[in-house]
Amino acid sequence: MKKFVLTIFFIATHIAMFSQDDLLDILDDEAPKSKTDGVVTSTFKGTRILNGHSVENRKDKELEFIISHRFGRLNTGFKDLFGLDESNVRFSLEYGLNDNLTIGIGRSSFEKTYDSFLKYSLFKQRRGEKSFPFAISLFGSIAAKTQEESFPIKERSFAENLSYVGQVLIARKVSKSFSYQLTPTYIHRNTVTNVADPNGIFALGFGSRVKLSNRVSLNGEYYHAFNESVSINAQNSLAFGVDIETGGHVFQLIFSNARTMIEKGFIAETTGDFFGGDIHFGFNISRTF
């Protein structure tokens, strides 16, 4: 009996020497291999880090409905109920044409803008024999402003109200608790309000996610524009927020100096100073079907 107890103690001690990741690696090695083995999943909780896109795609034939709100500035005080009297809204639908390709359309109340996009997963982060350190996706969108100018010098054509965005989304899930993403970005606006403003803007985005539990994470996002619109004293977009997963919903609470929800707006045309108190509270809520 004593020998049996010592044997059990010996086995338990050696099992405890393995970390959870070591045990998972052993199980992975012994499990049957498939074409998806080694693929790192859930780099981010949803298709948005906060304002901008993440590398996550909708799965094949999944449909996602997203409602986004951004309220006015908190520093307007009690008179405007700390910004809650103002609201910009965006509704969108995103559909997985397959596991690697997502198409989306949306409509924003700000400037009555319609937008559409395609996002394609080019490479997936992998571990194991065919390891690859990053997940890389390509993103392209087009947006059309339909709001009429209050005092137009001349009437704009439809083409003059168009803008385009191209991005490379480069993300890495470092551990179960931490992920980050770099997002080189180019924005082109067919028309600008001032000749001193650039039509094309280059920017670099950085986003991160710190997982607090299975359902909650803290996210941060920053976009640095290398050339900015001088006529509006454009600022770099900064945002912090919380992701909360509740069943089929992902609910994001956001604090940002940006009041718009498409790339052309929050990257190129943000005017608020985050550290000066120009902070907009908002949220994204999504439902997947």
Rank of each mutant, 00 (worst) to 15 (best):
L84D: 05
K61I: 00
R90P: 07
F71D: 09
I66W: 11
K79E: 12
S68T: 13
R73H: 15
N88E: 08
S92A: 12
I67R: 15
N88W: 07
G83D: 02
R70Y: 13
S92R: 02
F78K: 06
D85Q: 05
F71R: 01
F71E: 05
E86G: 11
L74E: 13
G77E: 00
L84P: 09
D80H: 02
L81V: 12
S87M: 09
T76L: 02
K79D: 14
I67C: 14
I67K: 09
E94S: 14
D85H: 07
G72C: 06
L63N: 00
H69G: 09
F78E: 02
K79T: 07
F65C: 13
F82L: 01
V89D: 09
F65G: 14
D80P: 00
F91Q: 05
R73I: 06
F82K: 00
F71W: 11
S87G: 14
F71T: 07
G83F: 01
L84C: 03
F65T: 15
N88G: 02
N75V: 01
G83V: 00
S68M: 13
G72H: 08
L74A: 11
E64M: 11
N75G: 11
T76Y: 01
R90V: 12
L81S: 07
F71L: 03
V89E: 06
E62D: 12
E86V: 00
V89N: 11
L74P: 12
K79H: 13
E62N: 14
K61L: 04
K79I: 05
I66H: 09
S92E: 12
D60P: 08
E86P: 04
F71G: 05
N88L: 06
D80R: 01
L84F: 15
R90N: 13
E62T: 06
V89C: 01
I67P: 08
D85R: 04
R73S: 11
I66S: 11
T76I: 02
N88T: 09
N75K: 05
N88D: 06
G77Q: 01
R73E: 15
R73P: 11
L93F: 10
R70K: 13
F71Q: 07
R90M: 14
L81G: 02
G72M: 04
L63F: 06
D85I: 01
L74T: 11
T76S: 12
F82G: 00
F65E: 13
E86D: 12
V89Y: 15
L81Y: 10
L93R: 00
E94K: 06
L63K: 01
D85G: 01
R90W: 07
R73N: 11
D60W: 14
G83A: 03
F91W: 07
E64C: 09
S87K: 10
R70Q: 06
S87V: 12
E62W: 12
S87H: 10
